[in-house]
Amino acid sequence: MNCKECHQQLMDYFDHNRESKGLQLLHSHLDSCQGCRELFDELTVILGTLEATSMVEPESGLEKKVMKRIQSLPVLVKQGDDGLSKMFMGSLSVIFTLILLISTPILNHISFLDMLIHGRSFIYRLSGIVLDCQIIYHFVSGLFSTFLFSLLQQIQSVYTIALFMTVFLGVKAVYGKLAVVKNGSI
């Protein structure tokens, strides 16, 4: 065993991992190496002293002070009751989604399936719009009416974005409620 290995073994020793085979090699090295022997002796004193003076008794009366303060605090309630607002938000999101799902095809005179397809194609178009900077160009060039016309063409697709956002918010609210019901983690 060399000194580097001895240091590692010493750390295991002071970690209270004292398997007999490693211990034998350690003591054998310590018998022949003064530097490591001194390190071992010094750490034994230092760490032994620390471990012997670990527990400290609190002053008397401190417990009473703590309980007095605890008793002045509001009584704890189970966190499930606080989830009422989250349930409400979740329900609101679901209702809003249903309204959108029903109203969008009616207002646009298209079927539900067409609406979803239209939404998907909108996403593709939106990417193109961002790349082409059409809207920015129209706005900057002052062609407000053209910009408005383009915007109106996209209005029916905004319903689809609102639909996805609402579903997302609804899922998030339900997930939040589930996380609240479960015991929190450290």
């Binding site: 401190l62 703590v66 303060r69 605090l73 704890l76 189970k78 015991n183 983690s185 450290i186």
Partner: peptide
Amino acid sequence: NDLFQEVFIRIYKSLHTYNSEYSFATWAAK
């Protein structure tokens, strides 16, 4: 002494976040 009181007040207020998978001693020490 001051921190002792503060820690236990905080422990009390955080009890709803305690996960029983971990030991209470570890959680409180944290």
